[in-house]
Simulated assay, not measured.
Amino acid sequence: MRNIVLISHGSMARGVRASLEMIIGHQDYLHVVELPEDGDNIQFETALSDKMKALNGATLIIADLLGGTPCNVALKHYSDLSTVDVIAGMSLPLVLEAAVNETLTADDLVNLGKAAVVNAKGSLKETATKEAEPIDLSEFEAYQGKANIVNTRIDERLIHGQVAGIWTTSLNTQRIIVINDAAATDPLQKSSLRMAAPSAMRLSVLPVAKAAATINSGKYGLQRLFLLFKNPTDVLAFINAGGQLETLNVGNMSYKEGAKEVTKSIKIMPEEAEIFKKIFEQGVKISAQLVPSEPSIDFMARLNKI
């Protein structure tokens, strides 16, 4: 894995790293060098030099500001080294892309960083006016009951950084299907989900019963599907409606009064524990895993210990 060094005036670099690791977990290859308020270019040169000497292999330096002291120092010392790239214009989306996809070049990352800056309010209105394209189901009859589901996940936040930037990318997902009655009937929420999904990825937001019927119908052919649920109640309802699941990944369930902790990111109520047991009785293997880089945990084994 290439090294990534974030450099900035003040604590911006540290803040971006903290936000990134909130999404994808701790990353050993991600480093920070900061220019403090009372520091100068000489002190920063020493700090950056010490950090770079401790690293081996390819390194990507991401600076906060073109023309600022951190960026100028990096260019002064490393512009002639083929193993070091320097980018200016640090942002969380840019660093996220660099962290999860080592194959992206410096130019690729710059283009992706530019594309991540959008008029969110304007885009929301534009998305809300789009209508779903009609699909001829007859051409997919050969795929009935053969849906290509690459992951099924419970995540209270539905589409966010871990799903959009990490899971779907690592699994080469072609379509995200959000399965939740409330989301499917709320135009504003549907528009927000479309904005949050990767632009190159298809998205469907469906009620539970319709999702089971539609997926079984073969409508999505051989597309690599990522099924996304908000809670275990919807998962069990999906199964009872005829939905076919072999595995279930539990990612994020937030704390509620009376909930017990299964993992740091998963807190469940007693009634939810009973629902998980019913899902497990249907032959579904349940795991807990926040991001792909972390180990998968046997959810039921952990649940039975609390």
Rank of each mutant, 00 (worst) to 15 (best):
R2T: 06
L6Q: 05
I7C: 06
A13F: 05
R14G: 13
L20A: 10
Y29P: 02
V32L: 06
V32I: 07
E34P: 04
D40R: 02
N41R: 12
N41D: 13
E45H: 11
E45V: 02
M52F: 04
A54V: 06
A58L: 08
T59H: 07
I62E: 01
D64Q: 08
T69A: 11
T69Q: 03
Y78V: 02
S79K: 12
S79M: 15
D80V: 08
I87N: 00
M90S: 12
V95M: 05
N101E: 14
A106W: 03
D107V: 14
K114F: 11
A115T: 08
A116F: 02
A120K: 06
K125N: 14
T127L: 12
T129H: 10
P134W: 13
L137H: 10
E139G: 12
E141C: 00
E141M: 14
A142T: 08
Y143M: 10
N148E: 04
N148S: 03
I149F: 08
L158T: 07
G161T: 03
Q162I: 04
N172R: 03
N172W: 01
T173H: 09
T173S: 10
N180K: 05
D181H: 10
D186L: 06
P187R: 12
L188E: 10
R194I: 01
M195W: 01
R202N: 15
V205Y: 04
V208L: 09
K210Q: 13
A211N: 00
A213P: 00
T214R: 11
N216W: 00
K219S: 10
L222Q: 14
L227G: 09
K230N: 13
Q244Y: 10
E246D: 15
L248D: 00
L248P: 03
L248F: 09
V250R: 07
N252C: 09
M253Q: 08
M253D: 02
M253W: 00
S254Y: 15
E261Q: 15
V262I: 15
V262S: 04
S265F: 02
K267F: 13
P270L: 09
E271M: 12
I275Q: 04
K277Y: 07
K278L: 14
F280V: 00
I286K: 07
I286V: 14
L290Y: 13
V291T: 05
V291P: 00
S293E: 11
E294W: 10
P295Q: 09
P295E: 15
S296G: 12
I297K: 14
N304P: 02
